[in-house]
Design a protein around this nucleic acid. Structure first.
Lengths: 262, 262
DNA sequence: GACATTTTTTGACACAACGTCATATTATCT
DNA sequence: AGATAATATGACGTTGTGTCAAAAAATGTC
């Protein structure tokens, strides 16, 4: 039987730790390769066979790392969440009001979705029950942990806003304890939905509408306004804010995006 | 070569029309069977082989109707949109303010998502490019048409609301011509996102949050409020409205849902 | 009703990918 | 160097796909 080198203890001999390093390095190599295949050829084009031949090992070896294609996709998902988390952290420390920071999360989410459309779309797929069953509980847990981290950042910002008086703690029709959840979930679902609709390829213009992402920024602020989150959007220029955030926090990503669209 | 009987003309001889009827009947039978397989065994469990054996024809025959599993899923998608449209139409004719009607759409969407989780989730899958390529443009068109119909209903309601003065035609930061789009897209993406997040199986309670659907109704109304859509939600009881709409429009669906959760 | 023609159905075939596992290979330890 | 443990390999059985020539059934003609 083959077992993955223990990840916890056992850094005693540097021999072992080297092995471990190599193992993890290959794990990343596999994920790199798989992600590339996913981007270039879609989920269909991502097969264990191709991954194996690409990294110049045999299929069996790949199976030593990931028990199925689904686990690979899960692995890619985790890495996605990691980079998204990193973008969120930048927003979290943006020197400005909490409202700006929260809005920045929204922006980050949509930039990310545009930069990694395929990954984004396939993460959704990971959620369906019959696919979930093919992923070890451990690895599911790892993904969940990232999700937890990300929501944590958002919740923190809202709580700080309340503490600092930007946002009234009590809202009509919402129990006080639920206020942060509700706001975070509102933003999250709106962002999530907009991004997925954007990626869906529905020709909105033919349906007599604008593109979802153009309206998302607007609606995000409308929602924040309705919670009386100061400053309200008629007191500043939301388009300007977007520009500012883009250059201050996400210059790199915007750059990449331009590159990509060219 | 085998060709599908012409769908347009040629009802001349009743012999032909009978054939055609039989053909369409079987098409439905296939979709029925496939949908059932999808619900019970997930997308993995839906195979041409099983469908064929289930309807007691050979695989070849199934391929005469649908060139691939993807086309079957597309077919299921179209039927889903049809029943959703029907639910939307009920909302459209609800005797009440336009705001109530639009809110009813939101409700319908979420009831539907709860009743047909698997279908809902897999419709999203249809949107990824590499799957799209496996569906004939014609059949894609059919799906698109349903989408068009559905957005049409929503847009109509908003326009009527403006005409009747429930909703100010001009909004800060939104070009007047874009107001209906923006509102519809806001609601759509929020509903879409909430529903998908709800189905995602993320254990929100473990992340210290409520369930998405509980907050969706609230946030929907917050959003409408922020557009100054009268009557604002502090002038009536949104929970009460939900109840009313459930019994007046969607008693059946609510019933089914209870059945299902039991 | 018998025969020709067209339509529909069938299942065998070639292919692609999956996941397993006994065996071969390589690295490590003494 | 020889023993032992870790790792990699690829052949194998299985399941599913999509195609297509041939069989079967239905339809049209006399």
């Amino acid at each position: 039987m083959q077992t993955e080198p223990a990840t916890t203890a056992d850094i005693s001999t540097d021999r072992h730790s080297r092995k471990q390093r190599e193992w993890q390095q290959r794990e990343q190599l596999i994920l790199d390769t798989a992600q590339q295949l996913l981007q270039q050829h879609g989920l269909q084009g991502l097969t264990m066979e191709r991954v194996a031949s690409e990294i110049e090992y045999s299929r069996g070896t790949v199976y030593n790392h990931f028990a199925s294609k689904e686990e690979i996709v899960n692995g890619i998902g985790i890495r996605c969440m990691q980079t998204l988390t990193e973008m969120f952290r930048r927003a979290q420390h943006y020197p400005g009001g909490q409202r700006d920071r929260l809005a920045a999360l929204s922006l980050a989410h949509s930039l990310y979705a545009q930069l990694h459309p395929v990954e984004m779309q396939n993460m959704q797929l990971l959620k369906s029950p019959d696919i979930r069953n093919k992923i070890s509980p451990q690895k599911q847990q790892a993904l969940l942990q990232m999700e937890q981290e990300i929501t944590g950042i958002a919740l923190d910002i809202v709580r700080t806003a309340i503490a600092e008086g930007e946002l009234p703690p009590s809202q009509p029709a919402v129990p006080e304890s639920m206020v942060p959840d509700t706001i975070v979930m509102g933003l999250w679902s709106m962002g999530y939905g907009s991004n997925l609709l954007h990626l869906s390829g529905i020709p909105f213009t033919e349906l007599g509408m604008q593109q979802p992402l153009d309206m998302m920024w607007l609606n995000t602020h409308k929602l924040l306004d309705s919670y009386q989150w100061q400053p309200l959007s008629d007191q500043f220029d939301i388009q300007k804010l977007k520009q500012t955030l883009c250059t201050a926090l996400y210059a790199d990503e915007v750059q990449q995006l331009k590159q990509k669209q060219k």
